[in-house]
Amino acid sequence: MDASLILRVSAPLLLWVPMAVSVYLLIRGHNAPGGGFVGGLVASAGLVFYAISRGQEAALRAMRLPPASWCGIGLLTALGSGLLAWLDPSAGYLTHRWWFPDISVTLPLGTALVFDIGVYLTVIGTITAMVFALVGEETG
């Protein structure tokens, strides 16, 4: 795949924009539209764009771990958020727990956020794995 010079040079810069937006969406999901799934989609769109401009190998290198591993880490994170529920042994799995640290403003942190981060990573892993499999077919 021959991408234009401008695209190839600007690709690493352009990778950061969707990444930042995706993290913003992930955190915004707390109380407004957004969340792990949408965030993950935006992030994987960024990675796919990177793969188009710089090639799949480069995108895989930028991800450090194989897509399946990201998927696994995400699943474990989401699972772990549910395990915290058993701090109270009578509670059902996935029962919410909240923590309100007071750093000048009250910052509400909950296990739901951990769950969402897990979703975010799982989505990135799944989407990139699928798209790379498709693109690999095209070129190979």
């Binding site: 799944t126 699928m130 499999a133 077919e137």
Partner: peptide, 19 residues
């Protein structure tokens, strides 16, 4: 979300079969 995943998988499968 599930339908999207299934359709994507089926698409990959059809492409492989086509190849």
């Amino acid at each position: 979300v599930i339908g999207f995943g299934l359709a994507a998988f089926a698409l990959v499968l059809v492409m492989r079969a086509h190849a």
